[in-house]
Simulated scan of single mutants.
Amino acid sequence: MSQQTTAGTPARPILIHDPTLRDGHHAVRHQLGREQLRAYAEAADAAGVPVVEVGHGNGLGASSLQAGRALLSDAAMLSVVRDALSSSRLGVFMLPGWGTTENIRQAVAHDVDLVRIGTHCTEGNLAERHLGLLRDAGVDAHGVLLMSHMATPERLAEECAQLVGFGATGVGILDSSGHYLPADVTARIAAIRSAVDVPVMFHGHNNLGMAVANSVAAAEAGATILDACARGFGAGAGNTQLEVLVPVLERLGYDTGIDFYRLLDAADIAERELMPAPPTIDSIGVVSGLAGVFSGFRNRVLDVAAREGVDPRDVFFELGRLQAVAGQEDLIEDVTLTLRAGSTGRDERTASHV
């Protein structure tokens, strides 16, 4: 694609980070196999995607009964994708509490190029030890804030400045529930951009159909790293769609450095090899986004609600009211049982008056 804007001015560089093989794991209950990982990683590498991220949906160390058992170990996933990449950098993600310093050391031993440490949007201090370890190891380390719609732009800026102080070489926010509109993103990225002197990133979900627009808003507000997944493969209603975002950015005068045709080929491989069907914005996706609930809760909510005979939409809205966050998966069961008990009580009271 052209490296010049229509006005002839140099294109603005922007880095695309591809978590298809990590966030996409949520959509298939963390069951991607070796050949699936290899096929997509090789295709993304051939397209010149700068960073390919791999792992359990919740990151290093998260394979468990609570968050879902992955088909492969962290070490196996890292080995397969490391071997498949010749030019793309290898990225991983970790949430303190799921992952530990030992998980980080294992990732570093597999020659990972970039580690993202994620925390809840107001708990960046939980990343201090991990960012310090990576800083001392000389590994590129980003601090990222989940469920960022729960905090003001000013608070997010303060948290990101703190992460830089801990050693983060990049910072940013995740729209973990697909709740944002472009103006929300603009305000938050602009505030962060004014508070730090490292690259700023944005990671979108598409529950309200705004992921590409939100990503563009982030870039226009100063973000220089954007996340996107092939076919939008990711939790909930899916992520920002990679093969759509890249040409949109190029039309707007950004330079991604990605080969467009090969990117389309990679997206075709992803649809064929990784997913039963591309993510869609269904009714549950819309409700989850409106409620501001972590997209990774989707499958668990549907399973528990079906088992208990409770409307999953009610579960999402109640989880949103309680401001549930990643790592509180057990709350899904508690909320569902409470709603069932309340419904049973109403039915009994109604029956007594018939």
Rank of each mutant, 00 (worst) to 15 (best):
S2C: 00
Q3I: 13
Q4V: 15
G8V: 08
T9C: 09
P10F: 03
R12I: 14
P13V: 14
I14M: 12
I16M: 14
A27H: 05
R38T: 05
A46M: 12
V49Q: 10
G61D: 01
S64V: 07
L65P: 10
A67E: 07
A70C: 09
S73Y: 08
V80Y: 00
R82I: 08
R82N: 03
D83C: 04
L85I: 09
S87C: 13
R89N: 09
P96C: 06
P96W: 13
G97E: 02
T101G: 13
V112N: 02
V115F: 00
C121P: 00
G124H: 04
L131K: 04
L131Y: 05
D140A: 03
H142I: 04
V144P: 01
M147C: 11
M147Q: 12
S148C: 12
M150V: 13
A151K: 06
P153I: 02
E154S: 12
E158Y: 13
E158H: 11
A161N: 10
L163R: 06
L174D: 13
H179E: 00
Y180M: 06
P182L: 04
T186Q: 07
T186N: 01
I189D: 00
A190E: 10
S194M: 08
A195I: 13
A195S: 13
D197H: 05
D197G: 11
F202S: 09
L208P: 03
L208R: 07
A213R: 07
V216Y: 13
A221K: 05
T224K: 14
D227A: 11
D227W: 09
D227N: 11
C229H: 10
A230H: 14
G232E: 04
F233S: 02
G234M: 12
A235K: 10
A235D: 03
G238F: 01
G238W: 06
G238V: 06
N239Q: 08
V248I: 14
L249D: 02
G253R: 01
D255G: 04
G257E: 03
I258C: 05
F260T: 14
Y261S: 15
L264W: 09
L264K: 11
L264I: 14
R272T: 12
P279R: 12
T280Y: 01
I284H: 14
I284M: 13
G289K: 01
V293A: 06
F294P: 00
G296S: 11
G296D: 01
F297T: 02
V301N: 01
L302Y: 12
L302N: 12
V304T: 15
A305R: 08
A305P: 05
P312C: 08
V315P: 04
E318S: 11
E318A: 15
L319G: 03
G320D: 00
Q323M: 11
A326I: 11
I332F: 01
I332A: 03
E333I: 01
D334M: 07
L337R: 15
A341Y: 08
S343C: 06
G345I: 14
H353G: 12
